[in-house]
Design a protein around this nucleic acid. Structure first.
Length: 481
RNA sequence: GGCGCUAUCGUCUAGGGGUUAGGACGGAAGAUUCUCAAUCUUCAAACCCGGGUUCGAUUCCCGGUAGCGCUACCA
C-alpha cells in the first residue's frame, strides 16, 4: 500500500499530452499548472507522451509539443517517456487483473456491441455493455483464445455501491457504480485503452498528484476502481476547468489560433502568454495582482485557488499582457525575438551595432503591442525601406508650405555640429518662431517625414536615434511624400 | 436521453450571512502635448431564476434553468 499522497514529502507530477495535435492552449495551461505546483513544492515533473493511438500520433507532433513547452519556459525533470514503448507493462497489468478476478476476457466484436447497444437504446434501455462475457468460465475463455478468437479485456465493475474521490479543486465527487459500464482495459489488438495506461503509468511512475483537464472528471471513478483493484491508494486528483472560446463552446480552430506555436508566430512574447494562461482559472491570494513573472507565479501558486468554472479565452487581455511584457522586457532580451520577425518580412536593418539597435528598441517598445510591430509599424527606425502612411501625410503634410519648411529645416540640421535631443528641438522652435508658424505643425510634419507614421515617440528622441545624416536625408525627401 | 460538474460586471476574477460587492481587460468621457496606440483622472457595467433557513441571503440548503463535460476496443 502506498502512503497518503498528500503527505508525501516530495510531490511527483506529470504532464501527459497525446501527440495527435500540437500543444493547444488548454494543454499548455494544464502543463503550466503542473509545473507551477511541482516547482512550488520542489517536486518532480515528468513528461509522458501518450501515443498509444498509433494512427493519430506522429513524431512531428511530439516535437511541436516539446517546442511549445520550451517556449513557455516549462521544463521537466524526467522523460519524455513514451507509452508506445511500455506496451508490455500494460498487457501484464491487464493479465494480472484477470488473474485476480477484477477483469475478464470479452469476445464480443465491435459490430456485435454496436448492434446490441443500438437495440437496447431503441427499446429505451441502457446503452451500457451488457456484460455478456463476464461469466465465461476461465477454461472456456482459455480454449477460445487458444483457438485464436480475438478478445478484449474488460474491467468488472462492481454492480452495487459507489465510487468517490476527493478532488483538490472540486471536492468530493461521487458516482454510483451502476452508472459505469464494464470498460475495456486492453483492446483486442493488444493495445491498452487510456484508463489502463494512465493508471499503470501513474502508478509505475509513482505519481502523487494528477492535475489534468476537467474533461476527465467523469472518467476518474473508473481509474479509482483500477487503483483499488491493483491494491493501491489513488493519487490526489486536481481537475482543472476547461478553456472555452468567446461563444462559450470548447476552444477550437473556429475561434482562431489554438496551438501555442501559433501565438509565438503571432508575435506574442512567452512571458505574457504564460502570465495570461496562469490567470485563466487561477488567481493569487491578492487578486489585484496580475503581472507576475515565473518566480512570483511559483511562489503564489496553489491548487485550492483554482476556479471551478470554465474560463473563456480573452484575446484582448492576452494582447494587453503582451504589450506590458514587451515594455518590461529589456532590449537585449527583446532583440532576438524582434530579429525573428524581421527575418519573416525580409527586413535587413541598416544598423548592425547591437547597442544602437537596443537603444532603438527601448525607444519604441513602449508603444508596441506585438512583436510584429517592430517589423511593421516601426520599420522606419530600423530600415530605410518603409511605407509611408497616407492618412498621416494627409493629416500633417498636406500643406505645401510645411514641406518646403521641412526642407529648409534639413539644411539647418545639416550645419549643426552637435546633434542632440535638446539641440534639435531648439532649432525647430527657433525656426518656427522665425517663420511665425506653430512649432507643432513642423514637428508633426517632420514626424511623418522621418518615420512614415503619424504616431511615434518624441520627435527629438527619434532624431537623436536616427542620427544627423538620416534625419537630414529624410527631411529633404519631404516634398516627395 | 442518463450521469457528473458549474453559475459575481461583456471577459478574467476577489469577496462573503449585514459591504457604497473590490480589482484587471475591454468600453465611454476628460486632461496633458509635439502625434498617440503612451500617461493621468473620471464614468458606466455583475451576484441566473424560484423557494426555503434566518431578524437579515448575492453568500447556506433545495428545486428549476442554462452552459460545459462524460457516456467508445479515442485520449
Amino acid at each position: 500500500m502506498s502512503s497518503n499522497p498528500s503527505s508525501s514529502a516530495s510531490p511527483r507530477l506529470r504532464f501527459a499530452p497525446s501527440p495527435t495535435g500540437y500543444l493547444h492552449v488548454g494543454g499548455a495551461r494544464t502543463a503550466l499548472f503542473n509545473w507551477l505546483f511541482a516547482r512550488h513544492y520542489g517536486g518532480t515533473l515528468i513528461l509522458r507522451i501518450e501515443d498509444t493511438d498509433f494512427e493519430r500520433s506522429t513524431a512531428e507532433m511530439v516535437d511541436g509539443i516539446l517546442d511549445g513547452l520550451r517556449w513557455l519556459g516549462i521544463d521537466w525533470d524526467e522523460g519524455p517517456h513514451f507509452q508506445s514503448q511500455r506496451m508490455d507493462l500494460y498487457r501484464e497489468s491487464a493479465q494480472k487483473l484477470v488473474e485476480d478476478g477484477h477483469a475478464y476476457y470479452c469476445f464480443c466484436t465491435k459490430e456485435e456491441l454496436e448492434q446490441r447497444r443500438a437495440a437496447a437504446q431503441a427499446k429505451g434501455g441502457d446503452p451500457q455493455y451488457d456484460k455478456k462475457c463476464r461469466n465465461i468460465a476461465a477454461e472456456e475463455a482459455q480454449a477460445r483464445r487458444d483457438a485464436g478468437e480475438a478478445c478484449a479485456i474488460r474491467f468488472a465493475v462492481p454492480d452495487a455501491g459507489s465510487t468517490f474521490f476527493d478532488d483538490a479543486v472540486f471536492g468530493r465527487v461521487e458516482f454510483s457504480n451502476s452508472e459505469i459500464e464494464d470498460f475495456v482495459l486492453l483492446r483486442s489488438d493488444g493495445g491498452p485503452t487510456y484508463h489502463l495506461s494512465v493508471v499503470v503509468d501513474d502508478l509505475d511512475m509513482r505519481m502523487t498528484h494528477v492535475v489534468r483537464g476537467a474533461d476527465h472528471l467523469s472518467n476518474t471513478p473508473k481509474q479509482v476502481m483500477l487503483y483499488r483493484a491493483l491494491g493501491v491508494q489513488p493519487p490526489l486528483f486536481a481537475h482543472v476547468p476547461l478553456i472555452l472560446g468567446p461563444d462559450k463552446t470548447r476552444l477550437s480552430k473556429r475561434h482562431g489560433a489554438t496551438s501555442v506555436t501559433a501565438y509565438k508566430d503571432e508575435g506574442i512574447v512567452p512571458g505574457a502568454f504564460r502570465n495570461f494562461l496562469a490567470l485563466l482559472g487561477w488567481s493569487p491570494p491578492d487578486s489585484t495582482r496580475e503581472m507576475m513573472d515565473d518566480r512570483a507565479l511559483i511562489d503564489l501558486f496553489d491548487l485550492s485557488a483554482i476556479q471551478k468554472s470554465n474560463a473563456i479565452f480573452d484575446r484582448g487581455k492576452l494582447d494587453w499582457f503582451n504589450s506590458e511584457y514587451i515594455r518590461a522586457y529589456p532590449a537585449v532580451q527583446l532583440l532576438p525575438l524582434i530579429e525573428e520577425e524581421w527575418k519573416k518580412v525580409g527586413l535587413i536593418p541598416f544598423q548592425t551595432n547591437r547597442e544602437a539597435m537596443e537603444s532603438t528598441v527601448d525607444l519604441v517598445k513602449p508603444r508596441a503591442r506585438n512583436l510584429k510591430d517592430f517589423a511593421t509599424l516601426f520599420r522606419a527606425y530600423f530600415s530605410d525601406e518603409y511605407e509611408v502612411d497616407s492618412t498621416a501625410v494627409e493629416k500633417f503634410l498636406k500643406d505645401e508650405a510645411v514641406r518646403q519648411m521641412l526642407i529648409e529645416l534639413a539644411s539647418r540640421y545639416e550645419k549643426e555640429d552637435v546633434f542632440s535631443e535638446g539641440g534639435t528641438e531648439k532649432v525647430v522652435r527657433d525656426f518656427a518662431a522665425e517663420k511665425s508658424v506653430k512649432a507643432g505643425a513642423l514637428i508633426n510634419g517632420a514626424r511623418v517625414a522621418l518615420t512614415g507614421q503619424g504616431v511615434a515617440p518624441s520627435l527629438f528622441a527619434v532624431m537623436a536615434n536616427l542620427g544627423q545624416e538620416r534625419t537630414v536625408a529624410r527631411l529633404k525627401r519631404a516634398k516627395e511624400l
